[in-house]
Design a protein around this nucleic acid. Sequence first.
DNA 1: CTGAAAGCGCTAACAT
DNA 2: ATGTTAGCGCTTTCAG
Lengths: 319, 319
Amino acid sequence: MPTIYEVARLAGVSPATVSRVFNGVSVNPDYADRVRAAAAELRFTPNRTARRLRRRSSEVIALIIPDIENPFFTSLARGVEDRAQQAGYSVVLCDSDEHHDKEATYLDVVHAEHMAGVILVPATDHPQLDRLLGQGTPAVAVDRSVPGHPVDAVLLDNETIGRQATERLYARGFRRVACITGPHGTETAQQRAAGWQAEFTRRHRRVDPDRYLEHGDYRVGGGRAAMTALLSLRTPPDAVVVANNSMTVGALEVLQERDISPAELGMACVGDLPYSVLQRSGVEVLPLPARALGTAAADLLLARIAGETGPPQRVVMPV
Amino acid sequence: MPTIYEVARLAGVSPATVSRVFNGVSVNPDYADRVRAAAAELRFTPNRTARRLRRRSSEVIALIIPDIENPFFTSLARGVEDRAQQAGYSVVLCDSDEHHDKEATYLDVVHAEHMAGVILVPATDHPQLDRLLGQGTPAVAVDRSVPGHPVDAVLLDNETIGRQATERLYARGFRRVACITGPHGTETAQQRAAGWQAEFTRRHRRVDPDRYLEHGDYRVGGGRAAMTALLSLRTPPDAVVVANNSMTVGALEVLQERDISPAELGMACVGDLPYSVLQRSGVEVLPLPARALGTAAADLLLARIAGETGPPQRVVMPV
DNA sequence: CTGAAAGCGCTAACAT
DNA sequence: ATGTTAGCGCTTTCAG
């Protein structure tokens, strides 16, 4: 691999001049041309590792998501990539698999690799951000907030979403709408359930809402289990709000297996179902602005990287 | 950020010894303990950028896929990640979006970042691999081969898959099975179509197969367009083999809109449909070993990184 | 087994 | 505006 020294020699200038040409610093046009010609001839590409070591920063941002197979997150990733590319940054995508350990490992990598910043969908309430923040690497949380740390966050109005989903089902004539939400202790799960509960209690003053609230794991299996549980209630619901896309799939599977029609048991899903082939399944879908969440997070991060100071922002996306 | 010098000073040893401790080189256990204690106290993490510059290699491999929103590729990515993690490598995922330019840019990054290797689902017939290969960075192609370059490849037996999909539909009683395949000039598209055509011509000696072959773009929109075209034929097919998952969704959408039942128009899909909620849609699904493709590619790449020489391997995964 | 010292390729003072 | 030079933090000969 050629280095700036070889390019410099071939172009008859100093290494510093070569560096300047490649960094947009003003240089005598003659020299610049010679440098570019020499670089082309030698097929020179600046060594980013060296540059990074020297500059102590790089044009790479990390995006850590909890499940790369969930279209909500891949769509979010597209949003981040769009903005980052425009700004000349590369995005490296990391899958924490909802594991705190993997998340921590990736955050260490971000740190050790001198990345410019990180956009994180936290796998837990307490991601290990201290090191990074201490070092001055900016971080932005998306979809889920990080209570303990002063980081920017881009969030959804989950309570409203939960309420809307519930309203839609009642509006369609269902009489008893249950809820399948995410894991205990998960912010989005709690908020979406709260939205549901507000509507539910308004309509069923005498019924304990907890009987109609199930917690799943935000995965297909959790949706199956929760749906099964709801169906075995003495007075089963005639409709259900499911707090994310994967669990909706699980719930639908159960209904299909038992040949329960959309009219018998209504369903609303928070978030797009991939490949909306489900029209005839009669599921009420509440789309979520996943991609916009990504672009907003990227904008926030890029601003911080550019030196923006000021108190942590908290952006709530309209739904 | 602390450096090995500070750790060395605190531990009362030389920087070289600290380096050795962190690299598993044998060191006096006393020293090693002191170094580890000092490192812990200072919260030292080795600077990977410096290490990489010095070693001229890193424990990062790139995976370049053409569409991060396609579950086939995310599943493949999981396979790669699994193996890579086990071997102590990080995976950075890049989305070429089927664009030759973006692919080339990412390949440049792989080169400039001194990555250990790259696994590539080529967006074109001629990915710009020369630089990388010239530099000795190993590359493995997955799902699509790279005719011009001597790189390892992990492929599917697409012709067999196409044939099987077709057979299944005829076996279910359909009489005239059409095919929607991928873009012209795409290897997998051509091969899957060839499999279909072999079956088709065997059964319809007098019919020009080209009339029942449509080319789409491997995306939802392409599936829609192709399905629409097939339905407007004078003698429309009564079933269709669709060469990938996304186009199947597009094709299904058309059928749903026109209220055409699975019995009226049968369908087979190459590759899993995400969230198999489609049971009642009657689609014959031919699962593809996406994840296994990823692990196989990772194994091949890791072997090359470890110094394996020898002629390029060509692995065809069983279906 | 350990330490001293020379770079990896680049950038950014500083000096010209 | 350009060149000289000193590192960025680490690994790795080479001596001891």
